[in-house]
Design a protein around this nucleic acid. Structure first.
Lengths: 139, 139
DNA sequence: TATTGTTATACTCTATAACTATA
DNA sequence: TATAGTTATAGAGTATAACAATA
C-alpha cells in the first residue's frame, strides 16, 4: 500500500521527469551529430573502457544478445569497432573500439558537457548538496 | 570555450546520468507491464489531459506527424484511444483516450510511483532543497 | 550438455517524400 | 497556396526461436 504523495513529492517527481526527458533528448541529438543512433552511442561509450565479449555488451545494454550482432555489424562497417577472437575461449568474440571509435567516443563525451552548463547555475556548495541528495536517492 | 569540469561537477553529471538511465528503464518496464511500448505509454499519458489533434501530438512527442498515424492506429485497434472529427476544421482529427484508455493511463501513472520510493529516503526539508535545486537547473 | 554468437523472423519506432482532403 | 493527416518506403532497434561452433 502506498500513501498518497505530497504535493512537494509530486513536484520533485515531475522535475526529475523533466530532467530525464531533457537529458535523454539531448543525448540522442548529440549522438545524431556524430551520425550515431542512441544505441550505437551507448555501445561505443561502453567500449571506451576496453574490449568486451558480445555477451557482456548485451548485459550492459540490457538487451538480447541477438541485437548486439546487428549493432556491432553496423559500427564495424564504419570501422568504429572491431571483432577479435578471445584467446582463452574460441566461442567468444571480443569487441574493441578502433582508434577512430575511441576518438568518436571522446568527442561524443565532450559534447555531452551540455549537462555541465545548467549546473553552472549552482554554487559549489549547492552542487555538493545536490550530489549528496542524489547519492542517497540512488543508493 | 568550456572550462574543465571539477570532479564534483563530473560526479553530479554522472549521478544524473544514472538517474536518467534508471528512470527510463523503469518507465519502459512499467509500460510493458501494461502491454504498451514506451512511445504508446507516453502518448496515452499525453491524452489524459484531454483530446489533441494529430499535429499537436507529433509536436509534444517530438516526432514526425507520419509516425503518429501508426501510433494512434495501434492504440485505436486496442480501443484505448479514438479519432474524432474537429467541428471547427474538417482537416483535423482529434485523438481522445477512451474510458479504458484513461484507466490504463491511471494505472500506469500509479505504477510509476516507484519514483516516490527512493524519495522516501529524504526528509521533507531535504525534498524541498532538492526541488529548489532542480528548479534552478531546469529553469 | 551447456554456452557463445549468429541467423531468421516479426513487430515497433522513426524519418522522408508523395499524396488527399480540406482551408 | 498552405495545412492536416495519410500512405509508401526504408532503416534501425527490439524480442523470440532455432542453429553452428566450441566448451
Amino acid at each position: 500500500m502506498n500513501l498518497p504523495a505530497s504535493p512537494l513529492t509530486l513536484e520533485v517527481i515531475d522535475l526529475i521527469g523533466t530532467m530525464v526527458s531533457r537529458f535523454h533528448d539531448e543525448y540522442e541529438a548529440a549522438a545524431a551529430d556524430h551520425q550515431l543512433t542512441g544505441a550505437q552511442a551507448r555501445l561505443l561509450a561502453l567500449l571506451s573502457h576496453g574490449p568486451l565479449p558480445m555477451r557482456r555488451i548485451a548485459e550492459q545494454l540490457k538487451c538480447e544478445p541477438s541485437n548486439v550482432t546487428g549493432l556491432v555489424d553496423r559500427l564495424e562497417a564504419r570501422t568504429l569497432v572491431q571483432r577479435r577472437p578471445d584467446p582463452a575461449d574460441r566461442r567468444v568474440k571480443l569487441v574493441a573500439a578502433t582508434d577512430a571509435g575511441h576518438r568518436t567516443a571522446d568527442r561524443l563525451r565532450s559534447s555531452l558537457d551540455f549537462a555541465r552548463e545548467p549546473l553552472a547555475a549552482l554554487e559549489e556548495q549547492e552542487r555538493a548538496t545536490l550530489r549528496n541528495l542524489l547519492r542517497r536517492i540512488l543508493a
